[in-house]
């Protein structure tokens, strides 16, 4: 069992009800890509946001690629396309 904190930023914070504040998996190995696919099953309305080339995921305050393998206790942040400036 893998689990950790989940932080949602920007418009993705609207999906906190479906996704909660923790991520978890019964798989022994879990990539960011697989984790996000699981989130999409619970919140399909997110699909347009997470399919954007500007969507990013940070693990322990570092942006990581979709192939990144998560460790137990990692803090995952979902970062939708930014809108600052």
């Amino acid at each position: 069992m893998l689990e950790g904190d989940l932080i949602l930023f920007g418009c993705l914070s609207d999906f906190e009800l479906q996704l909660g504040k923790r991520w978890s998996s019964v798989e022994a190995t879990l990539t960011i890509e697989t984790l996000v696919l699981g989130f999409l099953e619970r919140a399909p309305e997110m699909s347009e946001i997470v399919s954007s080339p500007f969507f990013k995921v940070a693990v322990n305050n570092r942006v990581e690629p979709q192939s990144f393998v998560l460790n137990d206790g990692d803090t995952v942040a979902l970062l939708p396309p930014v809108t600052g400036g």
């Binding site: 930023f9 920007g10 970062l79 930014v82 809108t83 600052g84």
Partner: peptide, 9 residues
């Protein structure tokens, strides 16, 4: 800044 800096309005 508009596309790469972590800010959301």
């Amino acid at each position: 800044l508009k596309t790469e800096v972590m800010l959301w309005k």
